[in-house]
């Protein structure tokens, strides 16, 4: 056993874990952050995706990696954002709002990973094309939706269109953080 220091969602945590503890196991079973999902557990499905950046970096939350095949000990020099840390003090992230408004989920298992991969994309590129969205999400498998509404949700979050459903689910009132998703009405095919 060793004492690991993990910096997750803006907080430092100390975790006692054996050398073979994966980051995903540390998140889920030591820190009880069960939003990161254990799907295939061997690096295929992307359900365990978290965002990481070197400690001390500011600005964007980082790049998506797979927590199930990362050793927890190797994540100590990183700042980690899990799905629990995606919403800010002002409410849901625009990505989260857009996924809800577009109905971009069914069972929901892939969603934490999808939304984090989408966040990383929009942090780097605020007006992505459809191929760019498809490429950015190509490491996340969804077995329910057929991806159409997921891609749509990313476009909605980027302010490129409005949800296509005729009676969109009205999520809670727009907070400051997601005004972009709510106010843009222009539809780009």
């Amino acid at each position: 056993m060793q004492l690991l220091h993990l910096f997750v969602n803006g907080e430092e945590h100390a975790v006692a874990a054996p050398g073979q503890r994966t980051l995903l196991e540390a998140l889920r079973y030591d820190l009880m952050l069960t939003g990161s999902k254990q799907g295939c557990d061997k690096g295929d499905c992307g359900a365990c995706t978290v965002l990481v950046r070197p400690r001390g970096d500011s600005g964007f939350r980082g790049e998506p990696i797979l927590a199930c095949i990362t050793l927890a000990a190797d994540a100590q020099d990183l700042e980690i954002t899990t799905i629990e840390g995606l919403a800010g003090p002002l409410g849901l992230d625009p990505i989260q709002r857009a996924f809800a408004d577009c109905g971009a989920l069914q069972c929901g298992f892939c969603q934490p990973g999808m939304m984090l991969s989408a966040r990383a994309l929009l942090d780097k590129c605020d007006k992505p094309t459809l191929p760019q969205i498809q490429e950015a999400l190509s490491g996340n498998l969804c077995r329910c939706t057929g991806y159409t509404k997921i891609y749509e949700a990313v476009e909605v979050a980027a302010g490129l269109r409005t949800p296509s459903s005729r009676a969109p689910v009205q999520s809670e009132r727009a907070a400051a953080s997601d005004s972009k998703a709510q106010t843009v009405t222009e539809i780009v095919p």
């Binding site: 690096g43 995706t49 998506p64 990696i65 991969s117 490491g139």
Partner: peptide, 9 residues
């Protein structure tokens, strides 16, 4: 090779 996360790692 693989997908974006795996290419990054």
């Amino acid at each position: 090779i693989a997908g974006p996360q795996l290419r990054r790692m």
